[in-house]
Amino acid sequence: MMTRHTILRVIAKFMIPYILLFALYVQFHGDFGPGGGFQAGVIFAAGFILYSLIFGIENGRKVMPPWLRRALLSIGVIIFGGTGLFGLILGGNFLDYNVLLENPVAGQHLGILLVELGVGITVSATMITIFFVFASQDQ
């Protein structure tokens, strides 16, 4: 743990909220500007990894315990697949968003939002998991 690197710690503490906020912006603004689930997930994970690098792996573990990481890993896939299945239940095809709401365009919008959310959750959980598994090898 880097207890002596004051500048690093202060700057990281200052930056991390903005990194996470930017990730959320990329996630939910991906419909209108560049970005989407993949990029947002990676940026979100980068925020967590920065925290763990500066304040120690153990503190990072407390923020994001393994059970939560594993749960998020599957929740993302379930959201994506669930959106697809929900379209199937409502009488459309698999991953057909037109039937999700009364208005096909609004349905498409909702479907894309949900799907991107699923992508983002899985990607960020994957990156954080890989980092933690790698980082805990040498302890």
Partner: peptide
């Protein structure tokens, strides 16, 4: 059809939803 100005997102998540699901 989707009401989204970013075509990349609509192709990725809607028209090519199967591929993206595979990637995830």
């Amino acid at each position: 059809e989707t009401g989204l100005p970013n075509m990349v997102t609509s192709v990725l998540a809607s028209y090519r939803g199967y591929d993206t699901f595979g990637e995830v």
